[in-house]
C-alpha cells in the first residue's frame, strides 16, 4: 500500500511540475491530465470510489478537454521561445516556502489537528446521494443555481458575439473569449454535474460544457 501510494504521489507530483514547466502548452495540458488521473487514483486508494470516478469523469473527461480546446482555439501550439521560468524565481520560491511554513504552523497549532481521527467511513453511493439530497440540499441547490446563471451568461455572450461580427470589435471579442475559455469551464463543469444531480435526485454526475464552445468550433 505504501509503495502504491509512493508511486501515485510521485507520478502526480512529477506530472504537476511538468505541467507548469514544459514549454509546449499542449504537453502541459496532457501532463495536467496525468496529474488529475493521479489524484483520482489517490481517491480510489482511499476507497472513495465515487469521488475517484467523478474526478476522472469531470476532470479528465471534461476539464482537460476544455483546456486543450482553449489552447488550440486561442493560439498556435508552438512552444514559447524563451524560458518559462521567471527571472525572479528565487523570490517566488522563497515566498512559497514562507507561506507553507506559516500555514503549517497555524494548522499544527490549531485545535483541528488535536482531534482524533474519526472512524473510517465506508460511504456507498447511496449514502452520498442521501446526504446530498437531505442534509446538503441547500448548498447543492445554490451551486446549481449559480452554475445555471453562469451557463445562461455564457450563452448570452455567445449570442452577442454572433450579432457583432466583423471589424476590430470581432478581434477583441475573440481575445476576451479566449480568457473566458480558460477560466470558465472548470467551474461550469464541476457545477453542472451537481446541478444535474440535484434535478434528477440521482448521484451520477454529468459534465455539461456550455454550448458556446460548440458554436466556437463551428465558427472555425
Amino acid at each position: 500500500m505504501q509503495a502504491a501510494f509512493a508511486i501515485i504521489a510521485a507520478l502526480t507530483l512529477v506530472s504537476a511540475i511538468a505541467a507548469m514547466s514544459l514549454r509546449n502548452l499542449v504537453h502541459c495540458a496532457l501532463c495536467l491530465a496525468v496529474a488529475f488521473a493521479g489524484l483520482a487514483a489517490m481517491y480510489l486508494q482511499l476507497d472513495a470510489q465515487f469521488v475517484g470516478f467523478a474526478q476522472v469523469l469531470v476532470y479528465i473527461g471534461a476539464v482537460a478537454i476544455l483546456v486543450v480546446f482553449a489552447i488550440l482555439l486561442t493560439r498556435s501550439g508552438q512552444p514559447v521561445p524563451h524560458s518559462v521560468v521567471s527571472r525572479s524565481w528565487i523570490a517566488g520560491v522563497a515566498i512559497a516556502v514562507l507561506v507553507f511554513c506559516v500555514l503549517t504552523r497555524v494548522i499544527l497549532s490549531s485545535s483541528v489537528s488535536q482531534r482524533s481521527l474519526p472512524a473510517k467511513p465506508s460511504p456507498t453511493v447511496r449514502e452520498i446521494g442521501n446526504q446530498l439530497m437531505t442534509w446538503y440540499v441547500l448548498p447543492l441547490q445554490v451551486i446549481g443555481l449559480l452554475l445555471t446563471a453562469a451557463t445562461i451568461g455564457a450563452v448570452i455572450i455567445a449570442m452577442n458575439e454572433r450579432k457583432s461580427a466583423g471589424g476590430d470589435h470581432r478581434v477583441t471579442a475573440d481575445q476576451g473569449h479566449g480568457h473566458g475559455h480558460l477560466a470558465a469551464p472548470t467551474g461550469l463543469n464541476e457545477g453542472n454535474a451537481t446541478s444535474i444531480a440535484s434535478e434528477t435526485g440521482s448521484e451520477s454526475p454529468a459534465h455539461y460544457p456550455q454550448p458556446e464552445r460548440e458554436r466556437e468550433v463551428l465558427a472555425k
Binding site: F53, A54, V56, L57, I60, G61, A62, A64, P205
Partner: peptide, 13 residues
C-alpha cells in the same frame, strides 16, 4: 455505471 462513464470519458483525450 459511473466507472463505465468515467473510463469512457477518458478516451476523448
Amino acid at each position: 455505471i459511473l466507472f463505465f462513464f468515467a473510463v469512457g470519458a477518458s478516451t476523448e483525450l
